[in-house]
Structure formats: structure tokens, C-alpha cells
Amino acid sequence: MLEPHWSLAVLAFLFGSAIGSFLNVCIVRWPEGESVVRPRSRCPRCGRPVQALENVPILSWLVLRGKCRGCGLPISPLYPAIEALVGLGWLAAYFTYGPTLDALRVAVFGTVLLGIAATDARRYLIPDGFTVFLLLWVLATSLIARGAGAATLFASPYEALIGACTGAGAIAIIGWLGELAFKKEAMGFGDVTMMAAVGAALGPERALLTVIVGAFVGAVASVSVIVPAAWVLHRRRLVQGDADAAFELPPVPFGVFLAPAALLTLLWGDRMIAWYFATVLQ
């Protein structure tokens, strides 16, 4: 790998933060069925169009002190946070893999997974825009990497096809079993298309590992955070006089846990599988 240059590192961060700005648009608009191209960005409260100098990633939010110049109401800090996170992700990909195709593939993969996690957390929805783009991107770049003969973290074209079927099939079966157990829909179709794209990136073995890791992280989060929070809300309703309030668990957006699991498995999945066979099955 070539020695990283600071000029390219700065460019990677700036370009990544710009991609993060566009990702914010996708996160907000795709669940509403809106175009991410038109109209131009605007304040969600007063509808005032955002001017070009007010749309500089991270910096504009700081200069405006987190408020709309039109109505003066707060702008969510999640916008600059996502821009910064994506910028740092692209920077980390560059420092780790250099100016290579794999660095670009890792950066794009992580960016789309962040968009999936954010929309699923906000709206319990995984837009097709994310999953279809990711699937096409993974398949196209797998062919390019194969033609170039470059070593890569990602699956080969053949493994990508098998992995897409494996990932989608595994999550569909889990959803079907959950529906039988809970008598209601347990898994949305967005999770299926997401795992088709993730499986294409990782191949069949790591696709299954992603589901396992995602389920484990989701279970830990449910026990440590979601269930206690639901119980506190239930007790509060009882204290407020709602004697008929029933204890209910909120729906769990599985994509929130599958997304980091997929990135973790891409980077360290082979080591995890090797450790399992060497230690557990020895």
C-alpha cells in the first residue's frame, strides 16, 4: 500500500462529508417517497430554501449556530453528525487501504449502511434506494476488481451471487419463523433486500455470520436498553392514572443492528470464522 498523503487525506474527508450531506437528503426524503434531486434543500419547518453557502457540510451548521436563518428554529445536530461521521469513515478507509478500489468500496459500503440504519431507526423502513444501489454497486465493483486482478475484502462475482441468495434467504426464513411465533409481521421486505446486498458484498459464510452477529447485538440492546425503557414508560403511565395501560414492547428495527454487524463482518469476519473453527470446534 502506498504511503498516505495528507492532501489526499483531506480530500477524502471533504469528499466524504459532502457524500454525508447527500446522505442526509436521502435519509429524510426517501422514506417519504420524495426525489433526492429536486426540489433543493429547504428548512423542514418554514420551507425556506437553503442557500449554497448555507449548505457547506459541518461548517454551515456551526456558522449558523444550529439554527435556520429564516425562522430561527433549531436545525438537528444529526445533520452535521452524519456528515462528520461519513467524512471520518472515508478518511479511515483511505488511511487503511490507501488510494485503492477497496478503499472506495469500503467507504461506500459503510456510508450506505449508515443510511440504512438511520432510516430504519427513524421510520422503521429501509428504502429501496439504499438497497438496490448497494446491490448494483457491489456486483459492478466485484466485476471490476476481478478484471483488475486486485486483492479485495469483498466477495468474488460468483460468491456475490451465492451470498445474495444466502443473505436474503436467511433473513426471510427468520422473518417467517418470527411471524409464526408472534402472529404478526416480524421482518420487513427491506431487511430481505438489505441482506441480499450485504450477502453480495460478503459472500455466503460472512452473510450468515452477519445475521448471527446482528441478532446477538439486537438481543443485547433489547435486554439492556429497549425492555427497561419500555418498562419505565409503562410504570409512568400507571403513575399518571392509566390503570388499563398494557406493557408493550416497541418494534425493533433489525436493520439498525444488521448494518454495523455487516461492516464488522466485512472487516473481521474471516478472522472470526477462523477463530471459531480453531477454538470452538477444535
Rank of each mutant, 00 (worst) to 15 (best):
Y94T: 04
F257T: 03
A207M: 14
S21T: 15
L238Y: 07
G163E: 10
L135G: 06
G47R: 10
G147S: 02
I173F: 11
W176I: 01
A9P: 01
G218N: 05
A186L: 11
V213N: 06
Y79P: 15
L78S: 15
Y97E: 11
V217H: 03
W90G: 11
A81W: 03
A200C: 09
Y79R: 10
H234L: 10
R236C: 10
V106G: 09
I212H: 02
G175I: 04
V225K: 08
W268R: 13
G98R: 05
A107H: 10
V256L: 07
N24V: 02
L161I: 12
K184A: 12
A172P: 00
R235A: 10
L139K: 02
P251M: 00
G47C: 12
Y97D: 07
G199R: 06
S60F: 00
I212D: 00
L209C: 07
K184N: 12
G241N: 00
K67W: 07
G149T: 11
F109R: 07
W231N: 00
T141K: 08
E3V: 10
A121T: 04
L143G: 01
A81P: 04
H234W: 14
A259H: 09
P44I: 12
L88I: 03
R236S: 14
A215P: 00
I116G: 01
E32M: 14
A197I: 04
A229H: 15
